[in-house]
Design a protein around this nucleic acid. Structure first.
Length: 216
DNA sequence: AAAGGGGTCAACCGCAGGGTC
DNA sequence: TGACCCTGCGGTTGACCCCTT
């Protein structure tokens, strides 16, 4: 047969992460830095598959993550970028360094989709929404139709257009820091342990909940 | 006060691409 | 050059929480 499963299903824990597991993962990554996910379960003793560990880190434990409450600014940005890039959540997330792709995806599916639909139903073809669902740039339509080279060039153009649109959008409400001007990921340089220390508040929160089991 | 329904969020699954041997 | 392995991405699902009836 083809490839083996990413992890043997026997003995691999699934479902919500416990504070203890979070702690094990965080302390391991603080020491070694992210990457080599394959080795993480073995080295930490976590009964999780590597994928699960990576996901937990990138979506929840990673330093600098902002949770909940998307601002108007962020919302606009997402709508714009979604219209231009389609469902490329990772690409969109790179413009919102504090948000994860999963977060953005969820927010889009639960809030923005409805919001836009409502606006369209109301007859208000709000800027940015048009062309998104209609299949203009969005989705993999163009990808499927064009050879890879063309597709990539197209993507480059899309990104360029996105930036321009972004500037447009932001010029309406000039309050966001320069971080948005370029897709600067806050990805900590591998090996720089000090960067991971900046996750202190994340970890502190983690520990707080962990140290006080009586609180439940 | 209880039950039901809807909404939200975290996590899993499968696929594709890139890198290494 | 080809095969295999690892990582990343997007879609989907399930559990939990809050609001309404």
């Amino acid at each position: 047969m083809g490839r083996p499963p990413c992890c043997d299903k026997v003995g691999v824990k699934k479902g919500p992460w416990t504070p203890e597991e979070d702690l094990m993962l965080v302390s391991y990554i603080q020491e070694h830095g992210p990457g080599n996910w394959r080795a993480v379960p073995t080295n930490t003793g976590l009964m999780r598959c590597s994928k699960s560990c990576r996901l937990r880190w990138t979506n929840y434990l990673r330093p600098g993550i902002k949770r909940g409450n998307f601002t108007d600014q962020e919302e606009k940005l997402i709508v714009h970028l979604q219209a231009l890039l389609g469902n490329r959540w990772a690409a969109i997330a790179s413009y919102l360094p504090e948000r994860t792709d999963n977060d953005i995806k969820n927010y889009w599916n639960t809030h923005l989709k409805k919001k836009l639909k409502k606006m369209q139903d109301a007859g208000g073809n709000d800027g940015g929404s048009e062309g998104a669902g209609a299949g203009g740039v969005g989705g993999g339509v163009t990808k499927a139709a064009a050879p890879k080279g063309q597709w990539e060039r197209r993507l480059q153009t899309d990104i360029h257009t996105a930036r321009q649109a972004l500037r447009d959008a932001l010029s309406l409400e000039p309050s966001q820091p320069a971080a948005l001007a370029a897709p600067a990921l806050p990805t900590p340089s591998p090996g720089s342990v000090t960067t991971y220390a900046s996750s202190a508040d994340n970890i502190a929160r983690l520990l707080e909940g962990w140290m006080r089991p009586g609180s439940s």
